[in-house]
Design a protein around this nucleic acid. Structure first.
Lengths: 193, 193
DNA sequence: ATCACCCTTCCGAACGTTCGTCAGTATATA
DNA sequence: TATATACTGACGAACGTTCGGAAGGGTGAT
């Protein structure tokens, strides 16, 4: 299906160069068609972009839900740390995450609201999914319960974003250093005395 | 001086809409001149952008150095937390920081190296400035010295980036929540037992 | 098996617009 | 008179988009 090839190429270009930095001809060249042919599949550039948004949103969310579902019985320390690791790995080989970060931080101005709807939905869902997991590990005494599940979750998502940022910079030894340090202090803060 | 007006307007537009999303005519309109007149002051768009980069880099760096210099004798807890607060405040009213975040995360592709030179210089300097401050507070027993000054600094800069990210999303109650949570757990991890 | 028909997909050509940039000229200041 | 600044006008290039038509496959009637 050409539509999917177009969306995939679009995702790659958008994630590397943003909305304005990506032209319809670049996408078309990738697929091996002329730019006019894209309009057979998508009404216009905005619509294409928003469809990619929707797909990526679904991708990211299903990754998270999938991870939680298949790891929720593990010790919370492994669970959280592995989540960071897997997201890091995912970013390295998967353009969805790169695209996602780009539009989360700097969506194209004229599509701000429509793009951010997905972003906020993702962020809310992320919190909604993590709070009960962390809450459970508190009530079971794995980690200190003085902190509160909501606060611990918020801080963990902060660590996640800090790692994301370092991924954007590109240096892998830098990234490793931040991951180690952030996790070390986060976990130290979370632990029972 | 018109040059400065041009740079200021350019900084605003670049920070809001990025390099590609900003046109010379928008900048010129802001200043009240024709776009061609910009070329009296700057060779081309790239040169203008890079000059803004340089200025902003200097701005950000001098903010940090200034803060450190006038706060380094305070307790480390106040010192670090106030740094987060002041950067938050700075972001709200100062377009330098917004521009800085944008080009740090997603510099224009064809200027990647030249822009990232500033970014890396900033990041290195930031670490270089914080390590001794945190190290000193460790040797004085304010915080646990098992952690190591480098690791504590790396984690703190992670917290900072996590806060930056939440600033980009725009919601102020979200930002407050993250700031509180991230700081709470970071400080809990940093404290002596 | 053939024909006519439709529908999907793609392309050539062109549209109007905007972009960054250059050359030449006017105006004001010193 | 020299210099700095801003102007008018125009340029080629790239952009997103539209239109008309060509090629192909599928379907149903003959």
């Amino acid at each position: 299906m050409t539509s999917n090839q177009i969306k995939e190429s679009a995702r790659n270009h958008f994630s590397e160069n943003g909305y304005d930095g990506t032209s319809m001809s670049q996408i078309a060249d990738d697929v091996g068609i002329k730019k006019q042919s894209i309009y057979t599949h998508f009404k216009d550039k905005d619509k294409l972009f928003l469809e990619v948004c929707k797909d990526v949103f679904a991708d990211e969310l299903s990754f998270v839900m999938n991870f939680i579902d298949s790891n929720k019985t593990r010790p919370i320390e492994d669970f959280l740390f592995d989540f960071l690791l897997q997201y890091k790995e995912r970013y390295a080989k998967n353009n969805s995450t790169k695209f996602w970060l780009r539009i989360s931080f700097f969506p194209p101005t004229h599509l701000y609201e429509q793009a951010m709807k997905y972003v906020y939905e993702y962020l809310d869902k992320l919190e909604e999914l993590f709070v009960p997991v962390i809450g459970k590990s508190m009530s079971e005494g794995e980690i200190s319960s003085i902190i509160g599940a909501e606060r611990a979750t918020a801080a963990f998502l902060g660590v996640l974003d800090g790692v994301f940022v370092e991924m954007l910079y590109g240096g892998s030894e830098r990234l490793q250093k931040r991951l180690d340090a952030s996790w070390y202090l986060f976990w130290r803060g979370l632990s029972n005395d």
